[in-house]
Simulated scan of single mutants.
Amino acid sequence: MTLTFAAPARTATPARRPRGRGVRRALTGWAFAGPATLVVVGLSLFPAVWAFFISRTKWNGIAEPQDIGWANYQRLADDPDLAAAAQHTLLLTVLFVPGSIALGLLIAIALNQRIRFIGFYRTCIFVPYVASAAATGILAGYVFNPQFGAANDALRRLGLPTQQFLESPRQALLVVCLIALWGEVGFTSVVYLAALQDVPKELVEAATMDGAGRWRVLRSVTLPQLRPVTLFATVWQTITALQLFDLIYTTTRGGPMNSTQTVVYYVYELAFQTRRLGYGAAVAYLLFAVTLLLTAFAIWRGRRSGEEAF
């Protein structure tokens, strides 16, 4: 009796790709992505790093900069103009963000209906968002002009008292917020409209068959499905409100009596009007830190509650 041992079966090994082909593909990819990467680095990362070094100096942009360490950052807590600008920015954010979210959701629900000319209505809502903010501000300056503006003309026809609008310290920031809503609500409307079309119809039909009305379906089915979108829109609109500049520049220039001077516009005045580039860069970095912390907190809170919006 003889014993025979079978040779172990050879496992098929995947064929290795030639190393030169992988290198060529990598070089081809970087050939396409490299120029765009250089532009991003040159226009964002390099100026950000350079601004940090400027924030540690006393410089007017012409003479030799003087290194003063962290003195500019120490002055931030004792600057009354910065405190006032921060209050204006906070008020604008508190009014703008919830308003844009609520209006965007209502408009999206209306645009989600099957009605005639729905494409035309959707286009009309989105046009102000893609229009130039500078053009929007110039147009709003004519509309809310106290003497010959269309807003006061409408109030006269209704028998109501005319208003000062952008020339009133009490009304100017509210009017700016209204103009910003008109220009930005198209973004939240489009985002919510896309999210509404992704809500599972089975859930809506099941809730309707159980006897739920439209309001109950909206509150118990639709809105919970829109939570990730709401988180994304809230973060995006908060950043938009904190960085609002061009609209203020073309309407009020921070006035009247600095009532619409936000932190971004205060940075512009420091850097390009009073030539205090070092202190202006320090204020800009403070705004960047606040924006980063708010965004990180919103993302952390959303992931903790299971709302993966980013």
Rank of each mutant, 00 (worst) to 15 (best):
F46W: 15
V49G: 09
V94E: 06
L111V: 08
D153W: 14
V127N: 04
L91C: 01
Q74R: 14
S132E: 06
V143Q: 00
F126V: 01
G149E: 06
F144A: 01
P47R: 00
A85H: 07
N152E: 03
V97L: 12
I68H: 01
A108R: 04
A83N: 08
A110S: 06
A86T: 14
D79S: 10
I125D: 00
F120S: 11
L45M: 08
A77R: 14
N112V: 03
D79F: 06
Y73G: 02
L76Y: 01
S44L: 14
F148Y: 15
V127P: 06
R75S: 12
F46K: 05
A84W: 13
G119S: 10
D78F: 14
S100H: 08
I109A: 11
L106E: 04
G104V: 07
H88C: 03
G137V: 01
F148T: 00
P47G: 12
L106I: 12
I125N: 02
A131L: 12
N152S: 00
D78I: 03
L139T: 11
L105E: 00
L90A: 14
V97D: 09
Y73F: 15
P98E: 10
L45F: 10
L90Q: 06
R116A: 11
A150S: 15
I118L: 01
V94R: 06
L155I: 02
F126H: 00
F52W: 15
